[in-house]
Protein backbone atom coordinates (compact mmCIF):
# COMPACT_ATOMS: atom_id res chain seq x y z
CA UNK A 1 0.00 0.00 0.00
CA UNK A 2 1.27 3.45 -0.82
CA UNK A 3 2.34 5.39 2.24
CA UNK A 4 -0.24 8.12 2.70
CA UNK A 5 0.54 11.35 4.52
CA UNK A 6 -0.48 14.99 4.57
CA UNK A 7 1.36 18.17 5.57
CA UNK A 8 -0.56 21.42 5.96
CA UNK A 9 1.01 24.87 5.66
CA UNK A 10 0.19 28.53 5.07
CA UNK A 11 2.41 31.22 3.54
CA UNK A 12 1.90 34.84 2.54
CA UNK A 13 3.57 36.91 -0.17
CA UNK A 14 3.23 40.69 -0.51
CA UNK A 15 4.20 42.83 -3.47
CA UNK A 16 3.88 46.53 -4.15
CA UNK A 17 2.79 46.99 -7.76
CA UNK A 18 3.38 50.35 -9.46
CA UNK A 19 -0.05 50.54 -11.06
CA UNK A 20 -3.62 51.12 -9.95
CA UNK A 21 -5.67 48.35 -8.41
CA UNK A 22 -7.76 48.10 -11.58
CA UNK A 23 -4.68 47.61 -13.77
CA UNK A 24 -3.16 45.15 -11.33
CA UNK A 25 -6.35 43.11 -11.25
CA UNK A 26 -6.57 43.09 -15.05
CA UNK A 27 -2.97 41.91 -15.41
CA UNK A 28 -3.68 39.21 -12.89
CA UNK A 29 -6.95 38.00 -14.34
CA UNK A 30 -6.81 38.62 -18.09
CA UNK A 31 -5.74 35.41 -19.89
CA UNK A 32 -3.38 37.11 -22.37
CA UNK A 33 -1.68 39.10 -19.67
CA UNK A 34 -1.58 36.17 -17.29
CA UNK A 35 0.20 34.10 -19.92
CA UNK A 36 3.09 36.58 -19.72
CA UNK A 37 3.83 36.24 -16.03
CA UNK A 38 2.25 33.00 -14.86
CA UNK A 39 5.04 30.82 -16.22
CA UNK A 40 7.46 28.23 -14.90
CA UNK A 41 11.19 28.78 -14.51
CA UNK A 42 13.21 29.85 -17.55
CA UNK A 43 13.59 27.02 -20.03
CA UNK A 44 10.26 25.36 -19.20
CA UNK A 45 7.87 24.73 -22.00
CA UNK A 46 4.25 25.38 -21.46
CA UNK A 47 1.33 23.44 -22.79
CA UNK A 48 -2.41 23.74 -23.07
CA UNK A 49 -2.68 27.15 -21.49
CA UNK A 50 -6.18 28.18 -20.52
CA UNK A 51 -6.99 30.51 -17.69
CA UNK A 52 -9.90 28.59 -16.38
CA UNK A 53 -8.94 25.05 -15.86
CA UNK A 54 -5.82 23.37 -16.93
CA UNK A 55 -2.55 25.16 -16.95
CA UNK A 56 0.65 23.31 -17.09
CA UNK A 57 4.19 23.04 -18.26
CA UNK A 58 7.52 21.61 -17.30
CA UNK A 59 11.16 21.27 -18.21
CA UNK A 60 11.69 20.03 -21.79
CA UNK A 61 11.35 16.28 -21.84
CA UNK A 62 10.78 16.17 -18.10
CA UNK A 63 7.86 15.66 -15.80
CA UNK A 64 4.74 17.60 -16.63
CA UNK A 65 3.46 19.81 -13.84
CA UNK A 66 -0.25 20.39 -14.04
CA UNK A 67 -2.16 23.15 -12.38
CA UNK A 68 -5.90 22.62 -12.21
CA UNK A 69 -7.78 25.56 -10.71
CA UNK A 70 -11.32 26.40 -9.73
CA UNK A 71 -12.29 29.99 -9.01
CA UNK A 72 -14.30 30.15 -5.78
CA UNK A 73 -14.80 33.85 -5.17
CA UNK A 74 -14.12 36.86 -7.37
CA UNK A 75 -14.70 40.49 -6.39
CA UNK A 76 -13.52 42.63 -9.34
CA UNK A 77 -10.47 44.77 -8.52
CA UNK A 78 -10.44 43.48 -4.95
CA UNK A 79 -10.16 39.77 -4.44
CA UNK A 80 -9.75 36.36 -6.08
CA UNK A 81 -10.00 33.08 -4.19
CA UNK A 82 -9.24 29.88 -6.05
CA UNK A 83 -8.66 26.26 -5.23
CA UNK A 84 -6.01 24.45 -7.23
CA UNK A 85 -4.27 21.14 -7.37
CA UNK A 86 -0.80 20.30 -8.62
CA UNK A 87 0.19 17.13 -10.41
CA UNK A 88 3.55 15.77 -11.41
CA UNK A 89 2.67 13.49 -14.27
CA UNK A 90 -0.20 11.40 -12.91
CA UNK A 91 0.61 11.96 -9.23
CA UNK A 92 -1.37 14.54 -7.29
CA UNK A 93 1.14 16.32 -5.08
CA UNK A 94 -0.85 19.09 -3.42
CA UNK A 95 -4.14 20.92 -3.10
CA UNK A 96 -4.30 24.63 -2.25
CA UNK A 97 -6.51 27.60 -1.58
CA UNK A 98 -4.99 30.78 -2.94
CA UNK A 99 -6.39 34.14 -1.85
CA UNK A 100 -5.20 37.26 -3.66
CA UNK A 101 -6.17 40.65 -2.23
CA UNK A 102 -5.65 43.93 -4.08
CA UNK A 103 -5.36 46.97 -1.79
CA UNK A 104 -4.98 50.56 -2.94
CA UNK A 105 -1.78 52.22 -1.75
CA UNK A 106 -1.84 55.77 -3.15
CA UNK A 107 -1.47 55.36 -6.92
CA UNK A 108 0.03 51.92 -6.41
CA UNK A 109 -1.37 48.59 -5.30
CA UNK A 110 -0.41 46.33 -2.48
CA UNK A 111 -1.01 42.74 -3.50
CA UNK A 112 -1.31 40.19 -0.71
CA UNK A 113 -1.33 36.53 -1.68
CA UNK A 114 -2.04 33.88 0.96
CA UNK A 115 -1.78 30.21 0.16
CA UNK A 116 -3.23 27.51 2.39
CA UNK A 117 -1.89 24.22 1.15
CA UNK A 118 -1.90 20.53 1.89
CA UNK A 119 0.99 18.50 0.48
CA UNK A 120 0.12 14.89 -0.21
CA UNK A 121 2.16 11.75 0.45
CA UNK A 122 5.46 13.56 0.98
CA UNK A 123 5.59 15.15 -2.45
CA UNK A 124 6.90 18.72 -2.57
CA UNK A 125 7.24 20.96 0.47
CA UNK A 126 6.32 24.47 1.51
CA UNK A 127 9.77 26.09 0.98
CA UNK A 128 9.85 25.03 -2.67
CA UNK A 129 6.23 26.05 -3.25
CA UNK A 130 6.76 29.45 -1.68
CA UNK A 131 9.95 29.97 -3.69
CA UNK A 132 8.19 29.12 -6.96
CA UNK A 133 5.21 31.32 -6.15
CA UNK A 134 7.45 34.28 -5.24
CA UNK A 135 9.04 33.97 -8.69
CA UNK A 136 5.59 34.31 -10.28
CA UNK A 137 4.85 37.51 -8.38
CA UNK A 138 8.30 38.85 -9.25
CA UNK A 139 7.36 38.28 -12.90
CA UNK A 140 4.09 40.15 -12.41
CA UNK A 141 5.75 43.08 -10.62
CA UNK A 142 8.45 43.33 -13.32
CA UNK A 143 5.91 43.17 -16.13
CA UNK A 144 3.80 45.97 -14.63
CA UNK A 145 6.90 48.06 -13.87
CA UNK A 146 7.99 47.66 -17.48
CA UNK A 147 4.55 48.66 -18.79
CA UNK A 148 4.37 51.69 -16.48
CA UNK A 149 7.73 52.90 -17.77
CA UNK A 150 6.75 52.35 -21.41
CA UNK A 151 3.74 54.67 -21.14
Amino acid sequence: MTDRSTAHATFTIERRLTVSREKAFRAYADPRSKARWFVGPEGWERSDHKLDFREGGGPPGGLIHYYNALYQDIVPNERIVLAYEMHMDSTRISVSLGTTEFKSDGKATRLVYTEQVVFLDGHDHVAAREHGTRALFDNLAALLEHEAQAT
Binding site: Q72, D73, V81, A83, V95, V118, L120
Partner: peptide
Protein backbone atom coordinates in the same frame (compact mmCIF):
# COMPACT_ATOMS: atom_id res chain seq x y z
CA UNK B 1 -10.24 16.84 -5.30
CA UNK B 2 -8.63 13.73 -3.84
CA UNK B 3 -10.29 10.54 -2.66
CA UNK B 4 -8.39 7.51 -1.35
CA UNK B 5 -11.01 4.94 -0.26
CA UNK B 6 -11.03 4.37 3.52
CA UNK B 7 -7.96 6.61 3.92
CA UNK B 8 -8.45 10.20 2.82
CA UNK B 9 -10.82 12.78 1.34
CA UNK B 10 -9.74 16.26 0.21
CA UNK B 11 -12.35 18.74 -0.98
CA UNK B 12 -12.82 22.46 -1.32
CA UNK B 13 -16.05 24.33 -0.78
CA UNK B 14 -17.40 27.83 -0.87
CA UNK B 15 -20.26 29.03 1.27
CA UNK B 16 -22.70 31.91 0.92
CA UNK B 17 -25.24 33.44 3.30
CA UNK B 18 -28.26 34.76 1.38
CA UNK B 19 -26.05 34.99 -1.69
CA UNK B 20 -23.17 36.86 -0.02
CA UNK B 21 -19.85 35.00 0.19
CA UNK B 22 -18.82 34.04 3.71
CA UNK B 23 -15.99 31.57 3.27
CA UNK B 24 -13.90 29.32 1.07
CA UNK B 25 -12.38 26.20 2.62
CA UNK B 26 -9.99 23.40 1.85
Amino acid sequence: VDIVPERRIVYSYGMTDRGEPISVSL
